[in-house]
Amino acid sequence: MKLNRPARNPHSETIIALIDVVFFLLVFFMLIGRMDATAPFDVRPATAVTGRDMPAGGITLAISATGDLALDGKEITRGALSPALSALLENDPELRLRINAHRAAELRNVLPLVAQGEALGFRNVVLVVTPETDG
């Protein structure tokens, strides 16, 4: 004997569960992620215990371990850096310059850029670090 089951609504309850999960993931990634431009090379900042929370905003100058530069995610030469920074500073004199140097970058490739930023008129130059647990 063949029993005829009543036809079930094929997708209503499963789709709502899927929407819930996708929405939860969407909010999760929006909250924990930062929408910063990433450098085209590997940059692992130095670790520090006394670093302060970095507010959003500003421009990021990334320095690779070998001394390559990237300004807000785009590679740039040392010669083109000063005009680019000056142009940005003209638009916003209070602009924060974040120097995100690889922890293995030699200081001869990093400190002159700090001085260069200061000389151009940046009043807020910070070094980017990652938090280290106080051991």
Binding site: G33, R34, T38, P45, T50, D53, V129, T130
Partner: peptide, 24 residues
């Protein structure tokens, strides 16, 4: 649309916890 937004945020966001030390 939600899936596209989800993939967009997953790919474009960075998840490093960054701090700062004033240089100047």
């Amino acid at each position: 649309v939600m899936l596209i937004l989800l993939v967009f945020f997953m790919v474009t966001s960075t998840y490093l916890n960054l701090d700062m030390i004033p240089a100047v």
